[in-house]
């Protein structure tokens, strides 16, 4: 810190010199701006170190699952402890990133958007599937236990193999398709407000896999489509623009042996979904749709 003070003096001096030599005004201004900026950076630096010193007592205790089949010493899974300095508003993801950047650069986990949109950082935190970037440290009890999602194969540290989840998602044809086209070639395909409202929640899935991991039916039956995939199917099956042929087709996929009927209403998916999608309600509605579709007397 002490070295920074003379530095600023120096720049001031050089500025004074340039002033006496009457350099163009624009250049003066530029130099002034630079000096300002330097000061601001220093200010921030000072604040940060102060903060860190202050938060020395205010550290969060993390226990993080470690495993790496490719490294000799890590083949046996274990928990590593990290003490991460806390700042207000810190999420579990922030803490993990701090641990990775400051303590152990080999700590591996997925993340991208940091705002609950990309769905890549669902993990098992303190005994529950949570989205790390959406979970405040202050809401959790210490030590905060971070593990990879259960019921999925661990590739390394907190990274699990999502391939099976994506396969299930793709199995329900998660895209809009219709043969119920409007007459005119340039006509728009309109959706009523009520219909949009109906599928609204189901469109919010971010493919994080938390629901699938929390469901122990999905854990026991690998072929079960799982809550996320069924919700995805709901989004399109309930969309009026797809027409009745498509709906039939979708229901046929859903009412297979490992489709909607596997759900035994444990509600664990609904409980963990970071997007608050009423998954169980959607699955139940599709069950009723499937029955109606087969009985056809109403």
């Amino acid at each position: 810190m002490s070295t920074q003070v003379p530095e600023t003096q120096e720049t001031e001096e050089s500025e004074a010199e340039t002033e006496t030599e009457s350099v163009p005004v624009a250049q003066q201004r530029r130099q002034q701006r630079k000096a300002d900026r330097r000061e601001r950076v220093e200010e921030r630096e000072r604040e940060r170190t102060e903060e860190e010193a202050a938060s020395d007592e205010n550290r969060y205790h993390l226990k993080v699952f470690r495993y790496d089949p490719e490294v000799e010493g890590k083949q046996e899974p274990r928990f590593d402890e990290f003490h991460v300095p806390y700042h207000k508003g810190m999420t579990v993801l922030d803490a993990l990133m701090y641990a990775r950047d400051h303590f152990d650069s080999s700590l591996t986990f997925r993340h991208s958007c940091r705002q609950a949109i990309c769905g890549s950082d669902a993990m098992f935190v303190n005994g529950r599937q949570r989205l790390c970037c959406k979970t405040q440290l202050s809401d959790l009890e210490e030590p905060v236990r971070v593990e990879p999602l259960p019921h999925q194969e661990v590739v390394k540290d907190l990274v699990v193999d999502m391939e099976h989840f994506y396969d299930q998602m793709e199995a329900v044809e998660p895209f809009f398709q219709t043969n119920d086209l409007p007459d005119g070639e340039l006509d728009e395909q309109r959706q009523t407000r009520e219909n949009r409202e109906k599928v609204k929640m189901s469109t919010r899935c971010i493919w994080c896999g938390a629901c699938m991991s929390s469901c122990n039916i999905a854990a026991g039956d690998n072929e079960y489509l799982g809550p996320a995939a069924i919700n995805k199917a709901y989004r399109f099956a309930m969309d009026e623009r797809e027409g009745s042929d498509m709906k039939e087709h979708r229901l046929r996929i859903l009412e297979q042996e490992h489709g909607v009927w596997r759900c035994q209403t444990q509600f664990s998916c609904t409980e963990v979904c970071p997007k608050d999608i009423p998954l169980t309600a959607h699955i139940q509605e599709l069950k009723r749709e499937a029955v109606k579709n087969n009985l056809k007397f109403w």
Binding site: Y67, P69, P150, E153, V154, V155, D161, N216
Partner: peptide, 12 residues
Amino acid sequence: MSQSYNRGLVED
């Protein structure tokens, strides 16, 4: 990615 660690039933 040749092998991956399965945490098994006990943990469940």
